[in-house]
Design a protein around this nucleic acid. Structure first.
Lengths: 192, 192, 192, 192
DNA sequence: CATGAATGAGGGTTCATTCAT
DNA sequence: CATGAATGAACCCTCATTCAT
């Protein structure tokens, strides 16, 4: 494993075990099995490290969502909603500890830029998908789409931060969010 | 204004102007016009101060929501949904800077406990309200209710943190969330 | 002794014993018998400390020279030259270690500003004095005066840095510089 | 250009553009277009590099002064004084940035040894020259000579460090120093 | 002989907290 | 009960130097 890779992984590990408040460059370096100096050879400062870790994570997320959206072009909108919600939640659950760690770290630094960029990628992909629904066209698709994604991201975050396991394990969150989106979309359908 | 009051206000002010990263006890004391020593007479440590500020803010929020819920007992559910969403968003918009400041500070410290407590108060009030809707009864009200509140809190936070002013100023967020909740509730109605 | 005083003294001591390259804020604080934190309560950073120490020293020097110049208003110019040279050199010899330490430290930081300010104070005082010589008037006094002071400051520094004790102990430097200035001034005299 | 040459030049360049405080071995190597490792193949440590650069510069200076002194054997002493002063100042002005950079760097490291050695070479050459003046013999030549060279070196340094351009551009410094030396030497002449 | 990633001691600086006044 | 100077552990970051390739 490359040094950079080790540092990335160590950052996540420290974030998970110690929390963002106790994340020090020394500790990260130690956990990565390298010296602080090495860390600073690859990242100009602590912020940059944070930034990079978040970017990497969010980029992965965005890519997966984009892929899902592409894969569901032309499907019925209910399937689209389910695919979107499921993909997003599954990714978050997959490495639950990482998800929680990054949610907590988000406020520490200026990650707003990355978050915004990724949000827009996801929004674009989603809107493109819904525009091709086989069984409906929508009024105000732009607004509706933005709403759904804010709801999706915000709600999932809330559920993770409150650690509401019961909503996550049995798919309650997924089912209900999908349902909510379907009824919402139905109301936005253009009468045939 | 009491000393404690001054300290509370100063904390918020520093949070707004300097951000949570630059909030130091000395700075808070200065802005409050008291000495650090005095600050420590009222709060055993920085965490406690943070905690208190958040508690006060969230308690106010919870109380307002509870009042709204009580006031809408027996109304049609659409009105309930609108009242809930409107009250929550209005409070957040009212002192937008404070809202954003506290969202950002949330991760810094362990506010999870307070958040959880307040969430449950709000959920209870909301569920009690919806149980009295004049025009419907709902399947699975507990789940539906929890979902709506997670969506409400999560989405609003997301919108504030992304600073999506366009959704806030013209009431787009309010209208759409209300609509979403109405269609969602409609789907949960018990057939008459 | 006040904390600030102790820090000033400690800075000089460290400068003398360890040299400017090994002057660390921690070491200064230790030697002063206070904590680093205290040091930073009085000086915003290391540079400021350096600056303050130099300013204090050079201000004293300038004041002494100014006093001497005032005291010799109306004297014959040879006495003036002797007074100027003697005062300057004596002050430097008085605390020889401090003198050497500060010469060495001068390049470390931006002391140029203070040096320039003090140089100008001294030049002004000196020129005012020579303008009142009882036994001569001078062509180009401004130029002649600036030359003498550059020579005085530069030469003394050179002698200290080269540690040419033999020139300092028996007054050789003083005698010769005075002589040099007298012959130089004589050449600038306006023929009666 | 040899590697060593490149490193020398790079050191000077970094000194000029970044100052002695920001001179790092890595930066020097970069600017020289070689690796740090290579730098350490030629210089055992940073001090040695500094040392070498200074030695090279001062050796050149000493050689030029020696040459001038030899060339003026048997001349009248006024010509000698002028030649000495002019040569020294011209060399310093020739690459003014280098001169200033090295003056500033001088305190950083232990260059005292080299400076002393070069000073003595120059003093010897100068004394030998003045001993052959065609128009005078001097009392105490050793002392007079040492004085003049301390004055010359010290004053020039002072003028450069204070950046008194007006004294350098129109030759004021040169003229006045020469004049000062001539009157000083005249006073030391052995009566015929 | 060149390279440059890796090292890690050490420097400047901050800030929550205490306690003598 | 108020004050604010003093504390010092801990943080971020730098850079001279080494050594495996």
């Amino acid at each position: 494993m490359s040094t950079v890779e080790a540092i990335f992984e160590a950052t996540i590990q420290v974030l998970i075990s110690d929390g963002p408040g106790d994340l020090t460059t020394t500790r990260v370096a130690e956990r990565a099995g390298v010296s602080v100096g090495s860390l600073y050879q690859y990242f100009p400062n602590k912020q940059a490290l944070f930034h990079a870790v978040n970017e990497r994570y969010l980029t992965m997320l965005a890519e997966r969502v984009e892929a899902t959206c592409k894969a569901h072009c032309g499907s019925p909108y209910a399937e689209m909603a389910d695919a979107l919600v499921s993909t997003y939640i599954e990714m978050k659950i997959e490495r639950r500890d990482v998800t929680i760690a990054l949610y907590r770290a988000a406020a520490e630094v200026d990650v707003a830029g990355i978050v915004e960029a990724m949000s827009q990628r996801i929004e674009a992909a989603s809107q493109a998908m819904f525009a091709t629904a086989s069984d409906a066209e929508f009024n105000n698709l732009a607004t509706v789409n933005v709403m759904m994604l804010n709801v999706l991201c915000g709600t999932v975050r809330n559920v993770f931060e409150r650690d509401m396991s019961e909503l996550l394990i049995d798919g309650g969150l997924r089912t209900q969010l999908t349902l909510m989106f379907c009824t919402y979309l139905a109301a936005a359908k253009i009468a045939a």
